[in-house]
Design a protein around this nucleic acid. Structure first.
Length: 419
RNA sequence: GUGGUUGUAGUUCAAUGGCAGAGCACCGGAUUGUGGUUCCGGGUGUUGUGGGUUCGAAUCCCAUCAGCCACCCCA
């Protein structure tokens, strides 16, 4: 008896027709990151659960509802990583990466896991690419991080997205702002939705984000974070914008950006693509000046972003950036008869050693079927060797675009294909 | 976690409770050794899964799984 297995909910296989697109995007990202001086870091897919609980915030949805937690044989509690920053900071501190004075620039690409109801652009295992710049509070780096993301998307050819920036302030302005918000919303308490009634004390900032109409109307006139920044934070934000203009990165200030992870301070930003539907964020990030300390390192500022690979692919598909780039073979080899096949195996081995993309299907059937297949694979040339050619010590090379067919001596084979 | 919606061939989709079909793709032939165009032929299926109602279920009912959409959350 055989059982048919199915893939776990909210996951997907990246099939050959798509995997080369993934690879292409990853390669482009690596190139851009390298150009900016970022180096790749690869951390495990699971960590001690505490790594996330303490940094992402133990009241956040990610930790409370969405983390894949498990216990190993010795009772240690681990979690599949729901995001990339915390592991990088853990590694930064654990390995003392901040030795030289300049900021440490790291990037990563890999799968993340969150237990959530699947939807377009949202799955339980998803791939993120991201960078972290650790060791400087210079607003230049805030701008540089945003610039890198921007250049990466432009590099890939994406047109339709916008950059939104905000500042959520440091701990001090954050506190006075939260207070102002609570004061503003409390008189309206009865008009708010149930969720917002709960949120008002826990995290009043979330009320700004609520999609319920009545709440939205009230929130419209709520005090703005930007008005509660202290002088230092105001300055910082102004300089970030100044540098962004200098870098010619178009952006808008959106004072409503509220990041879902607790560790953000000062600069917060999102890259939005409105063709994506409800899950419209291509990526986002911000500054986290207290995070390294939280992990037991000495006080060190940092900033970074993370983007979703699948969402990027969806956006690119929408803008038709992914057609016709599947790699096609240079040569399709056809051998007819046993003796010719033996010779073919030898010749094909030589070609592959010499970096030529050769396709060969010894059991494909008739010459007709073989050529049909060559055509489907979009091969440039076909090499044909049958009994007749073998006798005369030659092989046929057919140009599959023009149909032109030339006969070559077998001896000239290596010389012909060396260039 | 909540609400809505969909599930039929490889794929896109048809089929009043009454023989499960079409386009594309695929395979074979016309041409026994020459592709892309053309012509001829071939349906490749556990109707997501499991129950129930019925003489009879792709169709109605229940459950379940999965996709999609929105909430939520965020990448």
């Amino acid at each position: 008896m055989s059982i048919k297995y199915t893939i776990p909910r909210g996951t997907f296989d990246v099939l050959p027709k798509d995997s080369y697109k993934w690879e292409m995007i990853e390669t482009k990202f690596r190139h851009v990151a390298n150009r900016f001086g970022y180096k790749e870091i690869i951390t495990p897919i699971f960590e001690h659960a505490e790594v996330f609980e303490r940094s992402v915030g133990d009241t956040s949805d990610i930790v409370q509802k969405e983390m894949y937690r498990f216990t190993d044989r010795k009772g240690r509690v681990f979690a599949l990583r729901p995001e990339g920053t915390a592991p990088v900071i853990r590694s930064y501190v654990e390995n003392n990466l901040g030795q030289d004075n300049s900021p440490t620039k790291l990037f990563y690409i890999g799968p993340m896991f969150r237990y959530d109801r699947p939807q377009a652009g949202r799955s339980r295992q998803f791939s993120q690419y991201g960078i972290e710049c650790i060791g400087s509070n210079n607003p230049y780096y805030d701008a540089e991080v945003i610039q890198l993301f921007y250049i990466f998307l432009k590099d890939i050819g994406l047109q339709n997205f916008s950059v939104e920036v905000n500042s959520v302030g440091c701990a001090t302005c954050s506190e006075s702002y939260n207070q102002a918000l609570t004061e503003y919303f409390t008189p309206h308490l009865e008009e708010l939705c149930g969720d917002c009634k709960n949120r008002i004390n826990k995290n009043p900032r979330r009320l700004l984000d609520c999609k319920v109409h009545s709440c939205k109307a009230i929130a419209e006139h709520a005090p703005l974070m930007l008005d509660y920044l202290d002088e230092e934070c105001q300055n910082h934000f102004a300089q970030v914008q100044y540098y962004l203009k200098l870098m010619k990165v178009p952006f808008v200030v959106n004072s409503r950006i509220v990041r879902g992870l607790d560790y953000y301070t000062n600069t917060a930003f999102e890259f939005i693509n409105n063709n994506l539907g409800a899950q419209n964020a291509l990526g986002g990030g911000g500054r986290y000046n207290k995070l390294v300390e939280q992990f037991g390192g000495k006080p060190t500022p940092g900033i970074g972003f993370a983007g979703g690979l699948t969402r990027l692919l969806i956006s690119m598909e929408n803008e038709n950036l992914l057609s016709d780039i599947e790699p096609a073979p240079t040569i399709y080899f056809i051998a007819v008869g046993e003796e010719a096949t033996l010779l073919a195996i030898d010749m094909i081995g030589w070609m592959r050693k010499n970096f030529i993309h050769v396709e060969f299907f010894p059991d494909k059937g008739s010459l007709k079927a073989q050529l049909k297949n060559a055509n489907r694979l979009n091969a440039r040339l076909a090499i044909i060797i049958g009994e007749d050619e073998l006798k005369r010590n030659v092989f046929l090379q057919k140009d599959l675009q023009t149909g032109e067919q030339i006969e070559f001596n077998l001896e000239s084979f290596e010389e012909l294909y060396l260039s």
